[in-house]
Design a protein around this nucleic acid. Sequence first.
DNA 1: TTAAAATTTTAGACAAATCTAAATAAAATA
DNA 2: TATTTTATTTAGATTTGTCTAAAATTTTAA
Lengths: 223, 223
Amino acid sequence: MTFAEENYLKTIFYLEQEATEGVSTSAIADYLDTRAASVSDMLQKLAKKELIEYKKYYGAILTHNGRNHAILVIRRHRLWETFLVEKLHFGWEEVHEVAEQLEHIKSEKLINAMDKMLGYPKIDPHGDPIPDANGNFTKIEKRLLADCEEKWTGTIVGVKDTSSDFLKILDRKQINLGTVFYILNKEKYDGSIRLKIEDESIALSQKMASNIYIKVISMQNSE
Amino acid sequence: MTFAEENYLKTIFYLEQEATEGVSTSAIADYLDTRAASVSDMLQKLAKKELIEYKKYYGAILTHNGRNHAILVIRRHRLWETFLVEKLHFGWEEVHEVAEQLEHIKSEKLINAMDKMLGYPKIDPHGDPIPDANGNFTKIEKRLLADCEEKWTGTIVGVKDTSSDFLKILDRKQINLGTVFYILNKEKYDGSIRLKIEDESIALSQKMASNIYIKVISMQNSE
DNA sequence: TTAAAATTTTAGACAAATCTAAATAAAATA
DNA sequence: TATTTTATTTAGATTTGTCTAAAATTTTAA
């Protein structure tokens, strides 16, 4: 399996989650910053290897084999990201480029040993789930912070309002991509929410909470 | 810089140490298990990039640039090997294949962080020196075990006599490539040597000691 | 429902790295 | 020194992954 093939499988896996039908040639081309013609060639190659099902002009979906391999590449990527942040103290922005290279290193023994060293983490520094050695992982749906309940634990994955004003407020409150929070309290009266982030208590209005995407880590009282 | 180019530079670096003149096409082809024609092509490419000096039918030598890059690749390789053995508890045989892949990961920050995490090691698990961030390393000369003294620590790097009979004896005594030993005692009378290997005491005749190449790790009493 | 626009595929080309087979140069030897 | 052997290079082909330009198909819209 070449680097290029692995990158295509990983991309198709991502895009499949949002697509209703097959993943289109142009969606892949956009994502990988390549030309539709190149994608078309590769899809036929992957289809011949039975890693995807592919009908011309219809798009691609992963086969059982293809999905397994895509999940393996994602497992490698997310474990390396975790290693870089936890053990080598890389910042959020710095990990992606390096993990894009490391995710193609072929050694089952290596990746399972990394997993063990890191204590079998379930979530990577961005809040995305890490597949285990059998390829199982809990799918985490992103939702608005405003739709969460008291005592949940989650991680910030994005914003709806991308205005500089809003981002500045988040910055000031130390809310970044990947920040893990615990919901101390949700006020029924006005929908305002109080979070605990790194042992500090932070208040957010309903309006702010409606503009922050999060992924739920736990819906139980983990304190 | 592609993987292939880096592998050629690394190979030329190794072979230069033994060659008197330029490194020959066929020596590189042998080492990389490839064809002379392929090597010839690549040498011209590397010469055009000013990574080697190359005269037809004469062989190659590294330029300043080429040498620096070769040393960087070797630094990466040996740091990864050290990581695999020290942190992930890989065996001697298992590290090489994986390190061959990892040595091509491009990130200065990554490799320097690994170096720091490992405590800036000077020698890899095979007893080979690890270049520092500036490319400096102490060249370790291989010598015969028979020419060593009491209380030295070293590592096995090769044999002079490659007969199956001799190798069987070494196997039985648990002496392998990479084995680290401490010289407990050297008998002046007959030149016989007693080693400590993994807390076991092993006796070798002068004849055997004259057929084993080692690298000195320490000439001080490290016990 | 037919014409225009957008998407997708095919055809042909290219760079990288390899190969085999043939040509050429260097080294060894008679 | 002339000839044979060995080593090296060149020529031409192949695979992988990409590209541009052109052809084919699907979608959109008049």
